Computed example of a mutant assay.
Amino acid sequence: MNQINLTEAQLDRVIYSLWDFQQALSALTFLLEECEYKEKYSRVELRRFKCFEATAIISFARPFVTSRGKTTLGLNSLGIQLSKKQKELRDKLIYIRKTIVAHSDEEEMHFRSHTFDISDFDAKMAHFQFDEGLHLSEADVWKFVELLHFLKDGIFKRLFNLAQHQPEMLNKYKQPTK
């Protein structure tokens, strides 16, 4: 585990992935601190929990999803191997991100609409109900937390190794180009 062969863009993605994973962990921490999965909540409370869940999913998926043709996090180049269950969870989270959280794919839309008469008026009113539930069970959230820790630990080990053998690669300041 002496040399790590990464381009500068790949190294930047690895480093920034740590921030993405920390954001996801924070969102899951907030969710687990505030949500009792067996309790009933108002729509507003459920939406708050859904915001935490959505932030966790989007932050987690960023390193794995190509954005504007840029590089993604290559776990193989870091020597990080996911188990079958970890790969399934990663794929599930990326699917939720792609079809529900970051986009509104028609195949995944879940709502009900209907009209009703307004008394004393010759008019109808539309009413809409949306799925306010979470996409992940409490057990899924805990598996998600474990996966994030596994990934962060693997990245930290590789970056520690890089700091020992090629410290000049980590002496940098990256800022937005626009």
Rank of each mutant, 00 (worst) to 15 (best):
V65W: 11
R90C: 06
G69V: 10
L75F: 04
T66L: 01
Q86H: 05
T99R: 10
A56Y: 00
E33W: 12
S77A: 14
K38F: 06
E88R: 10
S119G: 07
E34Q: 14
A139K: 02
E88V: 01
S67W: 15
Y41I: 05
S119C: 12
Y41C: 07
T99I: 11
L78V: 07
R62T: 09
T72W: 04
S67D: 12
C51N: 13
K87R: 12
T55Q: 02
N76Q: 08
I94Y: 01
R48M: 05
I94L: 03
E36K: 08
Q129G: 14
Y37I: 13
E106W: 11
K124T: 09
R112D: 11
E132V: 07
E88C: 11
R90F: 10
T66A: 03
H110P: 09
S59R: 02
H103T: 04
E132R: 08
D122P: 01
K124D: 03
T115L: 13
K38L: 14
L31W: 04
R48L: 05
F121L: 03
H110N: 05
R43Y: 15
L32V: 14
F128A: 13
C51S: 13
F60P: 05
Q81N: 13
P63V: 07
S42Y: 15
A61F: 09
S77Q: 14
N76T: 13
E53T: 07
D140S: 05
L89R: 07
Y37R: 14
L73N: 03
M109E: 01
R112E: 11
T72V: 11
L75R: 00
H114V: 06
A126Y: 12
S104Q: 09
F121P: 08
T55I: 09
M125D: 08
M109L: 00
D140N: 06
C51P: 13
